[in-house]
Design a binder for these strands. Structure first.
Length: 293
DNA sequence: CCGCGGGCCTGAGAGC
DNA sequence: TGCTCTCAGGCCCGCG
């Protein structure tokens, strides 16, 4: 499911019931997600207070009182849901919350706040990992990540520098988490349409010969920031798996301009183009060949 | 060093 | 109804 806006939506849903609360019990219903859990995984979580719940790129990071960090990634199909005391038995409304342990509820936390937090991930491309907070800089999953796209460090000059000399496509460059961390297939397609840049364009053309950002890069960066911020405000995009932790759907999918809209009219004013689907490095790209150059 | 394709999994939907 | 095929929001690894 999840790109940065979906992960941030999840973080905002979990923070009120996890931050400042103690993990009364942690249960792993199977021995692995993307990798096997260490044998003492649940024991290292039990009794810890969650000092804070942050996000880096598409990773959730829970700061624990033990001095460890619990890293969580949603993979393609992961979701969290929060079951408040009493909700589990409420019929109707949140039908997917009716049973406390559904299929693919692989990890469950019981919090001292009274909430139960369940991680569900049918495809198991997600992961959880514990590492010491003072070794954060050495954590291989985080070490090579580029800047946060919503942060000040991500600007046109930085992106131009990172892409200068890159022979790959703009699409592939923006998906590369080492260049900018948090974008995925949907929001790259959407940001490129909004800034009228072809996904097939060489990444190197985001910089001018002198290395300064090209004019199009000055449009691309704010397009990325805006689409991400708007998607967060909408609770993310729900295609198949993503839900807010309350069980509500996100609704940014209704504002897609190109993603999964092959054959439909490009929404750019006075464009008149038709959205096309191509495959780039094995993944669908949606774009308008008329207004994206 | 870099870019690409395959693989990891399950489930939904289309087509027959 | 049910089978088979394709595709899916991510990321790691090995290959050339």
């Amino acid at each position: 499911m999840p790109e940065l806006p979906e992960v941030e939506t999840v973080r905002r849903g979990l923070a009120p019931v996890m931050e400042g609360a103690r993990i009364v019990e942690a249960v792993a219903h199977r021995g692995d997600l993307r990798w096997p859990f260490p044998k003492d995984f649940a024991a290292r979580l039990k009794g810890q207070t969650v000092i804070g719940l942050g996000r880096r790129a598409k990773y959730l990071l829970a700061d624990l009182s033990s001095g460890e960090v619990l890293l969580m990634h949603l993979g393609m199909s992961g979701s969290f849901r929060v079951i408040l005391d009493g909700d589990a038995k409420t019929p109707g409304v949140f039908h997917h919350q009716r049973s406390e342990y559904g299929k693919h509820d692989h990890v469950v936390f019981r919090m001292s706040s009274g909430a139960t937090v369940a991680f569900n991930d049918p495809r198991r491309f997600g992961c959880m990992k514990l590492f010491p907070r003072d070794k954060m800089e050495d954590e291989p999953l985080l070490r090579a990540l580029g800047p946060e796209p919503l942060g000040n460090a991500f600007d046109a000059a930085m992106l131009a520098t990172a892409c200068a000399g890159k022979k790959t496509s703009v699409k592939a460059a923006l998906l590369d988490q080492r260049i900018v961390a948090g974008l995925g297939n949907i929001y790259v397609c959407e940001a490129l349409n909004r800034s009228h840049i072809s996904p097939k364009r060489m990444a190197s053309t985001l910089a001018t010969r002198s290395g300064a950002p090209h004019e199009r890069t000055e449009l691309l960066v704010p397009a990325i920031k805006t689409v991400l911020a708007d998607a967060i405000a909408a609770g993310g995009s729900s295609l198949r798996d993503h839900r807010q932790t309350s069980g509500e759907l996100g609704y940014f999918q209704h504002r897609f301009r190109v993603y999964d809209r092959e054959g439909k009219a490009c929404p750019t004013k006075a464009c008149g183009g038709t959205i096309k689907r191509i495959v780039q490095s094995g993944r669908s790209t949606f774009f308008c060949p008329v207004c994206q150059k």
